[in-house]
Design a protein around this nucleic acid. Structure first.
Length: 456
DNA sequence: TGCTTGTTCGA
DNA sequence: CGAACAAGC
């Protein structure tokens, strides 16, 4: 064999990378390729925060490849056309690609396979690059996929996980295959000021620190909003700068305590959502299990939610964290999603869209299916579950630190009283221009909605 | 072996 | 309340 092209997508790393390993084992030279496809922009998935993080990832990938004697080739245009061009320029006879589940990824794979076969070029699609357990590997007796997490997790836990692959020592890239300049983070406008840095190096440092300092306390502290004791590895999982297989292996070897187990369980949730989306690709935009909701159309309320001015401090704190960091604590994601879909009774697609516009880890499978879960149209076995924002605030931000961090209008209010500003008196009350609640609550839902929001 | 019924359990 | 699995026919 001669030359292989490796099409990098959501797997922007050199460690534990089966396509890269297979290509290097079978070929004299490889072309590491990334294609900036305008179809991704058109589909609305090119949010500034992710474009900036992606620019970091590509630079770091190029750096890693150069340390190994290679380089990254970046092209713009339709992904299939560009792969064909690079295959022709390099006279390649194989293309390697990571399997993925979004409609975009599946369409890309189908088109590539057809066009490459016409040219006599083999397409190799690799599992266990973007998931630890491949979608479709596990299924209950009566269906092609699991719709309930717990039985899925039982099987997932018994599934053998392959060994982590080392990063290659050398990556020989042929001359004469040109690259566009690498995109730069500074060229992206409209990104969050507190955005984390991207790239495999950044991801690996964070992972090492997490396994050393964070994971043991994960079970106890993961829901503590102010404690910020989650891994923050989600952007690296989204862009593939970290490998889910390596994360499972290293977390299990980290001692196997309750923290590590709880963390591995979250990685299983990620695989769970991927196997749902693989079986039901339309669930990215259609109710997985419809309850015939008649969602309200209330632009002013949605705008207040987006801007963090609902008058419910913990909701507003989380929405402002999202805008500032391009990231939100998972407990915040749950309670802000509950507020939009259950309290205001607004279509989950509106919320999912806003999250995808800002989240640096914005991921079709996780984002859409978690939104559906909270909206009651997904895989939740208790679809009527409503998270009361005040109860949630007192439970997960008991002294109000998280709210004071993100809502400066309330920074002067001490203690948990910050969660119910409408009860404040005297100076505390006078000193703030924080908005009144946009709706009054009854059992967590807007008062006038009581009894509605159920299936008809 | 394949289908129906019963039991358990759930971000 | 319904999904998943085990048992029963």
């Amino acid at each position: 064999m001669n030359v292989s092209v490796i099409l990098f997508t959501a797997d922007l790393r050199l460690h534990d990378h089966p396509p890269l390993r297979a290509a290097l084992d079978g070929s004299r030279q490889v072309v590491p390729l990334f294609v900036r496809d305008p179809a991704v922009d058109r589909a609305g998935f090119a949010a500034p925060n992710r474009l900036a993080f992606l620019a970091d990832c590509l630079r770091d990938l190029d750096t890693g490849l150069r340390e190994r004697g290679g380089r990254l080739v970046v092209r713009s245009g339709d992904v299939v056309e560009q792969v064909l061009k690079v295959v022709a320029e390099a006279d390649a006879d194989e293309v390697h690609l990571a399997a993925d589940v979004s409609a975009h990824a599946r369409h890309r794979e189908t088109r590539l396979r057809r066009v490459l076969e016409e040219q006599g070029v083999r397409l190799h699609v690799h599992d266990t690059v973007t998931t630890a357990v491949p979608p479709g590997a596990l299924s209950p007796a009566a269906s092609d996929h699991f719709a309930v997490f717990t039985p899925y997790f039982r099987q997932w836990s018994r599934e053998p996980i392959r060994d982590t692959l080392a990063a290659p020592r050398a990556v020989p890239v042929p001359d004469g295959v040109g690259s566009e300049p690498l995109p730069s983070r500074t060229a992206v406008t409209g990104l969050s000021d507190g955005l984390a840095p991207g790239g495999e190096q950044a991801g690996r440092s964070r992972l090492t620190a997490w396994l050393r300092d964070g994971i043991t306390a994960y079970e106890d502290r993961h829901d503590d909003l102010a404690g910020d004791a989650t891994s923050r590895l989600s952007p690296h999982l989204h862009f593939g700068t970290l490998s889910p297989v390596e994360l499972v292996n290293r977390a299990r070897r980290a001692g196997g305590g309750a923290g590590a187990e709880a963390f591995v369980r979250q990685l299983a949730w990620r695989d769970f959502h991927r196997q749902v989306l693989a079986a039901r690709p339309e669930a990215a935009s259609v109710d997985y299990r419809t309850r015939n909701d008649r969602w309200r159309s209330v632009p002013d309320e949605v705008e207040a939610w987006r801007e963090g001015r609902t008058g419910y401090p913990v909701v507003d704190a989380a929405m402002r964290q999202l805008r500032h960091e391009g990231w939100m604590h998972n407990r915040g994601r749950l309670l802000t999603a509950s507020f939009l879909t259950k309290t205001l009774y607004v279509d989950w697609r509106v919320g999912a869209r806003h999250f995808l516009d800002l989240l640096v880890d914005g991921d079709v499978a996780n984002n859409q299916l978690n939104w559906q879960w909270m909206a009651g149209t997904g895989t939740d076995s208790r679809p009527n579950r409503v998270l009361n924002p005040v109860t949630q605030a007192k439970r997960y931000d008991p002294d109000g630190t998280y709210v004071r961090r993100w809502v400066p209008e309330l920074a002067h209010v001490e203690g948990p009283g910050v969660h119910e500003p409408w009860k404040l008196r005297g100076l505390d009350r006078a000193a703030t221009d924080y908005p009144e609640p946009i709706v009054e609550l009854s059992e967590g839902r807007a008062r006038f909605l009581r009894g509605r929001g159920m299936a008809v």
